[in-house]
């Protein structure tokens, strides 16, 4: 564990707490993509099934349980308690265009030919594009609540911090995980456009608005 990864994980944790706070404070899931949240549940369940078969550390196990349970809880909030505030008509990204290619990539690129390993690869590829329905929705509506942009920024920072973590691990431990690194770089790149608007507008005290 190095500081890049630790702060990356903390940023991921913070992003989920910000998301739960947003839903609680505004009593609404407006501006959130149900499809992205459902993809995160898929990602976490597919990857962290190994919580039953592998033990890395107490930290690792607790985080896995937290990510699975909090993502499921968010889905419940969106489809249960706050359903009336969810607007599926603007959440129109076609997720099958993500699921199919990711499944295919996992069948081609994996470290071992076993069910859990192919599922692990699938989750890595899917995580890299899971934010697309949310970003697509943002693009469509052209604006976002400030708190929602903080959520996205924390989520993007988590992925960005994993990149120096991999460089550090390559240098200090001589290990490299080409599947995670490739997908991680793609995932971080998807946030660049968002980060530009976040830094130039939201952090200057303005509302998140995209040019018409």
């Amino acid at each position: 564990m190095n500081l890049f990864r630790f702060f990356g994980d903390m940023s991921h944790l913070a992003s989920i707490l910000i998301l739960l706070y947003k839903i609680h404070a505004t009593r609404s899931v407006r501006g959130l993509s149900f499809k992205t949240q459902a993809l995160y549940v898929t990602v976490f369940v597919a990857r962290y099934l190994d919580v039953f078969t592998e033990f890395v550390s107490v930290y690792n196990t607790l985080m896995k349980i937290f990510f699975i349970s909090s993502s499921c809880f968010v889905l419940y909030l969106m489809k249960g308690r706050y359903r009336p505030t969810n607007d599926p008509s603007i959440d129109t990204f076609r997720v099958e265009y993500l699921l199919g290619p990711c499944a295919l990539l996992a069948l081609i690129f994996h470290y071992r030919w076993s069910f859990l390993e192919v599922l692990w690869s699938f989750s890595i590829f899917l995580e890299s594009v899971a934010i697309l329905p949310q970003l697509f929705m943002l693009q469509r509506t052209g604006e976002a609540e400030t708190i929602t942009t903080h959520y996205l920024a924390a989520l993007g920072a988590y992925r960005a911090l994993y990149i120096p973590n991999w460089i550090y691990r390559y240098w200090s431990e001589d290990v490299i995980d080409p599947i995670a690194v490739t997908a991680g770089i793609v995932q971080t790149a998807l946030y660049l456009d968002f980060f530009y608007v976040y830094f130039t507008k939201v952090l200057q005290g303005q509302k998140f608005e995209l040019p018409a």
Binding site: R5, D9, H12, D50, E54, V56, S57, N60, M63, K64, F67, Y111, R112, E117, W120, Y162, N165, E173, D174, V175, I176, D177, A180
Partner: peptide
Amino acid sequence: LGWDVWHDEL
């Protein structure tokens, strides 16, 4: 170079 399966990250 460690190409071993290494799933200690989240």
